[in-house]
């Protein structure tokens, strides 16, 4: 079974995982367990197979972790590009400005990874935002909140996977900006929810998720099959 099982070449409908993981579940991704993610990864294919099927293999070591971050930034940048292109109904000038700036931040992240990874970079991912109603503020904000909280959790969980301190610092420079975004989006939904107890625990700690948990949560929005089986696990 493939990890984030992408559609087969030529198939036009959503891939199996996307059908099985409803948007509702995505928005409640905190409930995703390591166990369910572990099942998804079982028996990942090899690099050549991934490429032949139109999927991508993130690779191993620090390069793999950077490609993992690159994949997430591609997803976020694509989402906010859509939000900025077709702002939701009755968007305020300030909210429009904020979403354009967040878009630019995510594009800057994406392009930096692309340039830094050079020949090691995975190709452009195909995204699927059919579950998002871009004209509806509630739908856009709920999706943005999920992406930002997921991004923070992903970087928090990926820090320990890196061996090069320069890459670790780079990840640190990005994750706090994602957290600033997350807090803003949460406050736009409900003022004061910037760090509520749905995301920060009793020790005052934010959440960390491993790549399998993150990719499973992101799967409904990514058509391209992503093989993360060679990523480091600690």
């Amino acid at each position: 079974m493939d990890i984030i099982s992408g559609q087969k070449p030529g198939a036009s409908e959503q891939h199996p995982i996307a059908r099985n993981v409803s948007r509702r579940n995505f928005l409640r991704f905190a409930g995703i367990t390591g166990a369910s993610a572990a099942i998804i990864i079982t028996g990942c294919g090899k690099d050549e197979t991934d490429e032949m099927d139109g999927g991508v293999n993130l690779g191993s070591g620090d390069i793999g972790v950077l490609n993992y971050a690159y994949a997430l930034e591609q997803l976020e940048a694509a989402f906010y590009t859509r939000v900025a292109e077709m702002p939701y109904n009755n968007i305020s000038p300030l909210e429009r400005q904020y979403f354009e700036e967040i878009r630019d931040h995510e594009i800057a992240h994406r392009e930096l990874f692309k340039k830094a990874l050079a020949n090691n970079a995975i190709r452009n991912l195909e995204v699927d935002f059919s579950a998002v109603n871009f004209s509806n503020r509630e739908s856009v904000l709920a999706t943005a909140k999920a992406f930002e909280d997921l991004g923070v959790s992903a970087y928090n969980g990926a820090g320990k996977l890196l061996t090069n301190p320069d890459y670790l610092l780079l990840a640190g420079k990005i994750v706090s900006v994602e957290a600033r975004h997350a807090a803003l989006v949460r406050d736009l939904i409900a003022n004061g929810s910037f760090a509520d107890n749905t995301i920060v625990d009793a020790n005052g700690l934010d959440r960390s998720l491993n790549p399998m948990e993150v990719l499973a949560a992101a799967a409904p929005f990514v058509k391209t099959r992503i093989n993360a089986s060679n990523l480091p696990t600690n």
Partner: peptide, 21 residues
């Protein structure tokens, strides 16, 4: 320790975002 520090770090960033708002 690294992961715990990162988990505190992003909470501080959430605070910073809100205080700025």
């Amino acid at each position: 320790v690294l992961t715990a520090a990162l988990n505190i770090h992003s909470v501080e960033a959430r605070h910073a975002s809100h205080i700025r708002q």
